[in-house]
């Protein structure tokens, strides 16, 4: 069995009386694309926020490559290699497309004031950022303001920006939301193309058809709990998953 890159171990998160995550345990394995499905309100986005340190877990542990990262805050998780995109695309709209990728360069995110003392290496940084844009088919839009991008381009720029920090695990929060069939097809190809540069990719979606073709394994969630974990065929045939989606066991 492949090594575990990221593990959720009994992670709980409450907001007042609401149990957003209840003792959630699952693992992300090396080299895989893991799909996370669940109906609206299942806790998928909360899971990403807890994984990326936006929210602190109330209970449980999150282990990344053998290191307990439960207590790390958001920027420390970013440095540790946990990258993410956002359900409602969040770009630096007043910066250019190229700048959105440049700003994620680890040299400067880790030592923001270091650039005051060193003037070297800029050309390499720009070349690396342009290559990143090229891989996401955005090189010709590098000089536009990010706020002027079309929806699909904005989605891919967000992924390019997340990849620019050379992360270990990338969380994609509903990347295909709002896309038509052709755009979705292209996005699938783009996601597959970047998997070799990462330890693992976790894709949160409620489009089951998409995850069936994209994912190596699936995790199904509902009410903040794990319903099933395994290959897409097994998880999607699981009675509890079927009932969570169709609302009835007999359906």
């Amino acid at each position: 069995m492949a090594e575990t890159v990221l593990g959720f171990d009994g992670v709980s998160k409450r907001f007042g009386g609401i149990h957003a995550l209840s003792a959630l345990s699952f693992e992300v394995r090396a080299g895989e694309i893991l799909g996370v499905i669940g109906p609206n309100g299942a806790g998928k986005s909360v899971m990403i926020n807890v994984a990326s340190g936006v929210y602190a877990a109330d209970e449980g542990r999150i282990v990344h490559r053998g290191r307990d990262i439960t207590r790390l805050n958001a920027h420390q998780r970013g440095r540790a290699g946990i990258a993410r995109t956002f359900q409602n695309i969040r770009l630096f709209k007043r910066m250019t497309v190229l700048e959105n990728v440049l700003v994620a360069d680890k040299t400067h995110t880790v030592r923001p004031f270091g650039s005051l003392l060193s003037f070297g290496r800029r050309r390499e940084e720009i070349a690396a950022a342009l290559a990143e844009l090229d891989r996401m088919r955005l090189a010709d839009k590098a000089d536009q303001l990010a706020g002027t991008l079309a929806y699909g381009d904005a989605r891919r720029l967000e992924i390019a920006r997340a990849l620019a920090g050379k992360p270990s695990v990338l969380f994609l929060d509903e990347p295909a939301a709002g896309m038509n069939e052709r755009e979705t097809e292209e996005l699938l190809a783009d996601i597959r193309a970047c998997r070799s540069r990462l330890d693992a990719i976790v894709v949160v979606e409620h489009d089951m058809a998409l995850l069936r073709v994209l994912s190596d394994r699936l995790v199904a969630m509902n009410y903040g709990q794990l319903l099933a974990e395994g290959t897409p065929d097994i998880v999607l045939a699981h009675p509890e998953v079927v009932s969570a989606y169709l609302g009835t066991q007999d359906g």
Partner: peptide, 22 residues
């Protein structure tokens, strides 16, 4: 310098800036 861009990012969206490791 790249610091200007870091500052721009922090000003525009602090949550995203943090997720990038800033």
């Amino acid at each position: 310098t790249p610091l200007q861009r870091i500052l721009d990012a922090v000003r525009e969206d602090e949550l995203v800036a943090r997720s990038l490791g800033i």
